[in-house]
Design a protein around this nucleic acid. Sequence first.
DNA 1: TCTTGTATGTTAGCTGCGTTAACATATGTT
DNA 2: AACATATGTTAACGCAGCTAACATACAAGA
Lengths: 210, 210
Amino acid sequence: MAMTTEELQETAAPKGKYHHGDLRQTLIAACYDIINERGADAFSLADACRLANVSTAAPYRHFKDRDEILAEVTARGFEAMTARAVEAVEAQGEGTLEGIVAMGQAYVDFALSEGGVFRLMFGGAPALQDSEPVIELGNNCFGYLIQQITIYCMAHGMEQDAGAVAVKMWTFVHGASALLMDDKYEKVTPDLDVKAMIADAIPMLLGKPG
Amino acid sequence: MAMTTEELQETAAPKGKYHHGDLRQTLIAACYDIINERGADAFSLADACRLANVSTAAPYRHFKDRDEILAEVTARGFEAMTARAVEAVEAQGEGTLEGIVAMGQAYVDFALSEGGVFRLMFGGAPALQDSEPVIELGNNCFGYLIQQITIYCMAHGMEQDAGAVAVKMWTFVHGASALLMDDKYEKVTPDLDVKAMIADAIPMLLGKPG
DNA sequence: TCTTGTATGTTAGCTGCGTTAACATATGTT
DNA sequence: AACATATGTTAACGCAGCTAACATACAAGA
């Protein structure tokens, strides 16, 4: 994902060939990028077709309908998000507070850099959320988040229910991502440092302030 | 807002009259309700016209384009949300912890009962967010939330920066609303009591656990 | 190699939506 | 009463999603 327009067009039509080669993957990638650049509302499947140099009917050889493509894009989103979370944790060491904080920051970074897909992953239509790959990869993603926080809590002998603490942290980080992405902080606290706020709040939610 | 279909159709066409009477308000109300019932994605202006018994061209006598109607709907959303917050606070008494918790619960309740509009208020297209009434009523709404939390903090002599605490609470409640609305908790903690979690987390974010 | 079936493209056409232009009818002001 | 203005309608356009009918490439067996 996250290819440039030129890269997409290279991949697009293997020069003069009637068949494309891998239109399915190319379309998913094109949609992924368009949605992140212009937002899901401004997205049209026809635009993706133009990017891939195929007719607007071509997608229907690979997908049932538009929603099925969006579901695939959404699933990729969860994949990418999980990858970022894993990366963040492993860079800091599993079971450390630094790892948890880094994971929270990765969550925020993902929302900021891939806002369009992030909205699909959460606000998306029921047709998307109920699709097979989305359910599975979504559960993987959330499961990993919760699991890592839980591991940390257990390792440090928290008296509270580790799962409950994990959900609270997730809630906080998700709220921060959403509000930041939508520029809602700007109006009220223009100079807010979101990452600092998260690093600050996480210990509080652990019940061990300071 | 929140009229039944029958009520809308009563308001719709003052039987046989060529002119409508108050198409502008009727359309806004119709859009508001459709969006909450079917989601902003499944919404079409044409549907709202059918509900109001007018042609699909009629709206353009009152609005520049579709986005202007959605902006109006979004603004109504902020109005309604502010009203609910004020109600919650005043029922419990300004400056009390109970008032703050009730306000948080009102936030969640609003997201659940008017999910479609809630998404517009946050995830909405730039064209909506940048409109005059949305900016103003949005600022009113957030301003009230922050203000009330700040009042509470000051009244109880919090050592921390009251504004910073307020933003943390808002973040948490917003995250809870979003995740709950999108059924994201279900998969991970099926039996979560969100309101209890909020009542639990708020004191933590105040830096005074227990 | 030829043939033939299947996968994967294309073009043409349908429907619905947003929008505008041209026209029609109320309303209210002189 | 006449006219300007506000607010409706119908007709038409372009674009998007989607389907059907047709075309082309590929792959596998005779």
